[in-house]
Computed example of a mutant assay.
Amino acid sequence: MPNLISVVIPAYNATPTLAETLRSALRQTHAELEVIVVDDGSKDGTRAMAESFAAEDPRVRVISKANAGVAAARNTGIDAARGDFIAPLDADDLWHPDKLRLQLERFTNGPPSLGLVYNWYRRIDTSGRIIDISAAPVVEGWVLYRHLDWNFVSNGSTPLIRRSALGDVRYDPGLNAVGAQGCEDYLIQLQIALNHQFACVPAYLTGYRRTDGAMTEDVGRMIRSHIQMYRVLWPDLDDTARRLARRRMAGFFAEYARNRARRGLAREAIGAVGQAFAHDPLGAPLKLAEQARLTFVYLSRGQGGRADRPIDPRHFDAYSDSEIDTPWDARRRLQRFKSLAALDAAYDPGMVERPAS
């Protein structure tokens, strides 16, 4: 079947949200799809719920496996997929009905080197209401350097990936093995960007859910995941990319130092400060000063955490794909991107010389 899209949904104890997520996948206006739900050893009714959908819609398949984490579950789904395109979808996120159709149109009109098409997203709460400003970046073409500097795709439920662009690349379960799970999406996007171009559908087509107790809420773990991700990617990077990666790693070590200090873990905080200087001696003082400023703001406001109050009572589905919920100030980020865009424009994966590790 031409243009068959394989939607891959890893699911672990996902009964509160899985039905809504599956409905958002099955209502796509591009109907040539298969939906593969990988039950990752759930202990609740996730498998039964997925199988009830499969009984009603032949496009749904359910695979059950022992629990091994989200990366391994996604890989199981990819290996079982029959489509020319892979569409990852987390079991608590939502899609606009036109998401896959609009992304596929970009592939149809794009160059053969196009490997990934992303779109904008809205961050939603457990009830599907918008809770944050929705970013609207358009970053296209060769994007490796800009994507190293900023994860503008930002979540795993947004990309549509050409199957051939993946090749043998899969999500890295090793991030979970070292207690740093959380950046598998970002890592695989960067691995695709090494050899393929990106394109953007400038529309809000993904509802990215922030749930209580979600993995992304463990700030320390997410920081460690970013640091480990750059280490995994390091052998494949050229000198320019390595300079960017070192700068980014220094920033994450500075953030980790603040995270550890707030928890009274002085030795770990001091070690992280040392790592920040080791990776970016000139930039580390500014990065550490910024983290100190954020700590002061945090303490002065007496905040015990971020409050997720909806900025609009409407559900994600009530928004059009082009409706702006609140203004996004992109000036600082896009100003920095000007120099990186020039580097990306000159990027040629066939001419890249990667230094010895």
Rank of each mutant, 00 (worst) to 15 (best):
D39S: 12
L94C: 02
G77E: 01
P111M: 13
R146W: 01
A66R: 10
N67F: 06
L33E: 03
R122D: 04
W142L: 08
V143G: 03
F152M: 01
V139R: 13
Y12C: 07
L116R: 06
H147G: 02
I130S: 09
A50V: 02
G45Q: 09
L94R: 05
Y12G: 00
H30F: 00
D84C: 06
P137H: 01
T29V: 03
N109F: 09
K99D: 03
A73Y: 06
P97Q: 06
T17W: 06
N151P: 05
D39L: 08
D125T: 03
G110L: 04
E140V: 13
D98V: 02
L144R: 11
R23C: 02
L114K: 04
D44N: 14
T15F: 03
T46A: 02
L33P: 07
S127T: 07
G77R: 09
N151I: 09
A14T: 00
V62C: 11
E105F: 12
D90S: 06
E51H: 10
G115W: 04
V143S: 02
I130N: 14
T21I: 05
R146F: 01
A87V: 00
E51P: 08
G110A: 07
Y118H: 15
A55L: 08
I131V: 15
R47E: 04
E20L: 10
L18D: 07
D98A: 12
V117A: 04
L116F: 05
L148T: 01
R47Y: 04
